[in-house]
Amino acid sequence: MSNLALSVNNLSFRYAGQAKDCVHDLSFEIFVGERFGLFGPNGAGKTTLMSLMVGLLKVKEGKILLLDKDLATEKKAIKHFIGYVPQDFAFYPELSPVENLDFFGAWSGLDKRTVKERTASLLEVLGLTDVAHKPVKQFSGGMKRRVNLAIGVIHEPQVLFLDEPTVGVDVQTRHAIIDYLKVLNAQGTTLVYTSHHLKEAEDLCERVALIDRGEMVAYDHLDQLLQRHGDNSGLEDLFLKLTGSAYRD
């Protein structure tokens, strides 16, 4: 077994009825235990790429290997060790965090006792114990983000995909989420992460890929990338330098 968590090879994808590829000839690798950041302006193809990597969209051109398994042929097996935290809230707002975790835990393949234990521990870590039995629809944006994250990690996935997990939350929640992700990573979980908060990305990610209009613009260790482009002011300036400052949406 290789030390690759994810390998993307010559991946292209075009939505039905569109003239151009949304993702064009992308190739990159992510190592086991790595914290990998995927960045780009709005419409760059990040969410499409994320959807392809977790199997929500079907790969038609190119290849994706997850922990050495081909996503096209071994999707069922792969589902057991990947986790996904989508950008939009994906839970039942009428249910409480406990009730949501009970259901999604069962669907993740866990037994009842494990779900119960992990629910208690996750709610504790993410500061949701006091509201464990209240309907999620009554929660603030930050609390909902934490519920969204808890559901994505309840089955302790080996590779966790996070699509803007901190969007719309206050500084405290953002720090709490980033700290928790670091803990998860320290326990061995590979993180594949997208965000618009580039300062946060600098803090979290070891390696990054910058994509624009579906194509790879830059891909390396963060410090080496900054060094190579002679830009020591940070990822945000490098981002603007490589993708331009014009509106994208």
């Binding site: 977790v54 839970f91 999604f104």
Partner: peptide, 16 residues
């Protein structure tokens, strides 16, 4: 509601 809340999307990547 399940479609709009994204629950279907999450369920789709779970091994069930």
């Amino acid at each position: 509601k399940e479609k709009l809340s994204g629950s279907f999307v999450r369920l789709k990547i779970l091994p069930t």
